[in-house]
């Protein structure tokens, strides 16, 4: 089995990932949000690479590389371009104030950790204890999507959720089969592009990216 050092390293990286998920929850600015997302991707890639090294699973190297390309370089670049073109650099507006959100997040973390404890005892991988962290970051990203009012932070929340899922998959089972992974990567990519197009359309229609305007679309 792998050395305890590598296990510790993976744990540390997972902890950093959760830290960034929390920072995103507390972040008010869209630009910093995108940067944080990029950092999260980078850490995810690093942890995947370490896991690949420690478990000699070569396909994990490819997924690490894919993560770097897609989530550290391409998607942040796309998002940056988007907000430049849409000219939206406003502060993120939240539905609930940030301390309350953070407290809720803390509760979610406790919940996730407790939930993951029995599952992670079944797993046999080096990084089984990161399962709780992965679950927690998925929940946190979900929370971020719920509490944000504008469209772009919601998309970032969606992408960050995918990061958490990816970590969960690698930590529990050494990653999904390559085909599935490629498929998901493609999904995310296409999803982001389509959302990008949608943003333009939403703004054309409502002259704003505030999602509360979408409420007008419901049936009266």
């Amino acid at each position: 089995m792998a050395s305890p050092f590598l296990g510790d390293l993976i744990n540390l990286l997972a902890a950093l990932l959760l830290l960034i998920a929390f920072a995103m929850l507390a972040q008010r600015r869209v630009l910093s949000l995108i940067n944080l997302f990029a950092w999260q991707g980078l850490i995810l890639a690093a942890s995947t690479a370490v896991m690949a090294y420690s478990s000699h699973q070569h396909h994990l190297y490819y997924s690490a590389l894919l993560t770097v390309l897609l989530k550290v370089l391409f998607l942040p670049w796309l998002l940056h371009r988007l907000i430049r073109q849409l000219n939206v650099k406003w502060d993120v507006e939240t539905l609930i104030n940030i301390p309350t959100t953070m407290l809720t997040g803390l509760g979610l973390v406790v919940f996730a950790f407790n939930l993951a404890t029995p599952i992670s005892q079944l797993a046999t991988t080096v990084a089984k204890s990161t399962l709780g962290i992965a679950l927690a970051s998925v929940l946190l990203s979900f929370l971020m999507m719920i509490t944000r009012r504008k469209a772009i932070p919601q998309v970032i929340g969606f992408l960050a959720m995918e990061n958490g899922l990816f970590l969960a998959a690698t930590s529990a089972t050494y990653g999904m089969p390559m085909v599935v992974e490629l498929g998901i990567a493609l999904d995310v990519l296409v999803g982001a592009v389509i959302l990008g197009i949608f943003f333009f359309q939403i703004r054309e229609a409502f002259d704003s990216l505030d999602l509360k305007h979408m409420e007008q679309l419901r049936e009266k």
Binding site: N11, A15, L18, L19, F22, A26, I98, P99, M102, L103, G105, L106, V109, V110, F113, A116, T117, S129, G132, I133
Partner: peptide, 24 residues
């Protein structure tokens, strides 16, 4: 500022939780 420090406080508590995740 309270928000900033509240974040610090929560992060530290989160750290404690992470510690327990590892030992459990």
């Amino acid at each position: 500022a309270p928000e900033f420090l509240g974040t610090a406080f929560l992060l530290a508590v989160l750290g404690l939780l992470t510690y327990f995740l590892r030992i459990s």
